[in-house]
Design a protein around this nucleic acid. Sequence first.
DNA 1: ACGTCATGCTTGGCACTGTCAAGATAGTTG
DNA 2: CAACTATCTTGACAGTGCCAAGCATGACGT
Lengths: 187, 187
Amino acid sequence: MSRSNSGYHHGNLAESLERAAMELLETHSAADLSLREVARTAGVSHNAPYHHFSGKNDLLKTLAERSMAELVASQRRSLEGVDPNEHLRSMLADYVRFAVARPHLFAAIYDPTICVPGQPTPAMAVLIAEEEQLLSDTARDARPELPDTRAFAAAAWGLAHGLAQLAQVGHLPQQAVDAAIDAFVVR
Amino acid sequence: MSRSNSGYHHGNLAESLERAAMELLETHSAADLSLREVARTAGVSHNAPYHHFSGKNDLLKTLAERSMAELVASQRRSLEGVDPNEHLRSMLADYVRFAVARPHLFAAIYDPTICVPGQPTPAMAVLIAEEEQLLSDTARDARPELPDTRAFAAAAWGLAHGLAQLAQVGHLPQQAVDAAIDAFVVR
DNA sequence: ACGTCATGCTTGGCACTGTCAAGATAGTTG
DNA sequence: CAACTATCTTGACAGTGCCAAGCATGACGT
């Protein structure tokens, strides 16, 4: 895990902690995640994290940013189709896929107790703006005739976000999600 | 708050606790809600709740059911328009309004740590089915020509749910939500 | 080579939480 | 009035986030 493990002076604890927390977030929710357990799995004392993060929320904020960056990158990658409608469809499907695959990380991104609502981290603000731009561009290409592209893009984001939540909870199976996206994109 | 307050034997603690928790959920999230604080605001000892609920989650489950019932009732009420499109629009707007007005209660309804995913309370299952039917009927009236009403209804639910989340977080102002709903309903 | 020192991690402690166990009290029934 | 049960209490335990203080370690000036 770490390069030099000679009792004290771990080497790069910050990264080890992030890694450990990332793993734990695959089974625990952000609220259920214990900073002490993160420290334990990283093999350090319960207070070591405080020398690298100002607290539990700070660590979570870092992970949320990391995750959002991954999501945006994934969204950018799913733009490589040809048909604009297919662009939009695959982007939305990809959004839902990400949320279902990493439910707790996805939740952390939008968790008001981590990034206070309307008070996003600078880095997070940039990422959200990127995502918005990505969606807006895709929406414009798919519906060039619409006067208000922003509204359509907002609807697309809302749709993807909501389907993601409903799918996470087990209310919508994968196939229903795809059908719903189709119903939104196709006309 | 209670009828007979003679030291012991509160009278109707269960309801008082629910009321207290309901109030606290206006400022605290479900995870941040302390059962002990609920007991405190109800004026009883920290262990009294355990004689009426099996634990914190049980109380939250009850509140989530209560809230979902309220939401469904509200949705049913917003069906009183005339134009089918207007039906749909007002239903979606109402869904978002509810979520924004009571963010923590709304979150509790879909919180996997309260109602385990795919394991809803019987009462909750009924309410969800009702909501689904309500949306499905409205969707059919608004788009009778569509072959797959279920997919369109699922999209509508997803849209409302996602817009609600994004609005809660402060990402979408009210007017953007309305515009997005319009973009979805109108064609 | 050696003392000095800041960095990074540790132990210890505090107030808080959810939950279990056992005791006290009050209304009910014989 | 005695026994009983429902209801609420106090007490305890393990766990949490976080603050304060102490100790090990490697770097640096001399």
